[in-house]
């Protein structure tokens, strides 16, 4: 295992709608023997709402500099945070003028390009590694899972760590834990609609419904995902989608960190599995 300590960037929803993702991330890394040091005074990455790249780079220069001071690479469970942190990292690394300009705003934005940002899935599969994961797993997941990747893990190219059209890392992780991956390749990388939730909920709901429907027709027991915005749409808003579109979905949705945690034998409560909006009890019965 090539990693023992990382700077942890939880992302804004970690204290609210995605606290289950935060809890399970911490619990899993603890079990894997990787120390997470929460970054001191981190700020929002800009999410999808700060569209000006210059602003995104400057906001994240501060975050990157905080971790660089500790000499640690950053890990985050959020796809959007990952995308913003790592594209800022690459832009700042490649452009000395940009680094100088950003540092000119305030010394605390002085980043030297010495670290990088990673998504938890990348760290699990490529840094911790499959052998190490397998050796620490004590339970088998008798669960049929629809692996949902969403947008920023496989695209755009510069920051991607999986295939843009048919990503596989989550599939492998689920299989490693004894789970069954249902056929889902047409839907895996479809956007959840989240960025339009507040302004065009009709479109956002229609997008999410496609994913939930596809998981249902594939016979999945649950969807696994790796982003708090996807989680909010597919899990948190699922009942709103059912009501607005007059459909019954009833599809449990869990973070990949929660599933991995179950395979590692971690207590369901410690993984926040009582906090998912759609009940997860049935899944827990299938962990043996």
């Amino acid at each position: 295992m090539s990693v023992s300590k990382m700077a942890y960037y939880p992302g804004c929803p970690s204290e609210g709608t995605a606290m289950d993702q935060d809890m399970s991330t911490k619990a899993v890394f603890e079990k894997l023997g990787v120390e997470l040091v929460e970054m001191d005074d981190w700020n929002c990455c800009g999410a999808a709402e700060v569209e000006d790249p210059r602003l995104v780079y400057a906001l994240n220069a501060r975050n990157l500099a905080i971790a660089e001071k500790e000499g640690l690479d950053i890990v985050t469970p959020c796809s959007i945070c990952y995308y913003n942190l790592e594209r800022s990292n690459q832009a700042l690394k490649a452009d000395e003028d940009l680094r100088t300009k950003v540092k000119g705003i305030d010394n605390s934005l002085g980043y030297n390009g010495k670290i990088r940002a990673k998504h938890v899935l990348d760290v699990f599969m490529n840094d911790v590694g499959q052998d190490e994961l397998k050796s620490k797993m004590s339970k088998k997941l008798n669960i049929k899972v629809a692996p949902y990747y969403g947008c920023y893990l496989g695209r755009p190219r510069e920051t991607a760590f999986d295939d843009p059209d048919d990503p596989v890392l989550m599939d492998r992780l689920i299989e490693l834990a004894g789970g069954e991956v249902v056929p889902f390749s047409q839907t895996k990388t479809l956007c959840c609609g989240g960025p339009l939730m507040m302004t065009r909920s009709d479109i956002a709901f229609a997008m999410s419904r496609k994913i939930l429907d596809a998981a249902r027709s594939a016979g999945a027991d649950c969807i696994a995902l790796a982003c708090p915005l996807c989680g909010m749409m597919l899990d948190g808003k699922q009942a709103d989608i059912e009501k607005a579109l007059n459909v019954t979905l009833g599809m449990p949705v869990v973070y990949i960190t929660q599933l991995l945690g179950l395979a590692l034998g971690i207590d369901a409560k410690k993984l926040g599995l009582n906090k998912n909006a759609v009940d997860t009890k049935e899944l827990l019965g299938k962990v043996v």
């Binding site: 999808a48 496989g154 695209r155 755009p156 843009p164 956007c191 339009l196």
Partner: peptide
């Protein structure tokens, strides 16, 4: 302009 999801599918392809 305002219903794009910034999902990057177009960019990737």
């Amino acid at each position: 302009l305002w219903i794009c999801l910034i999902c990057q599918t177009c960019t990737a392809r």
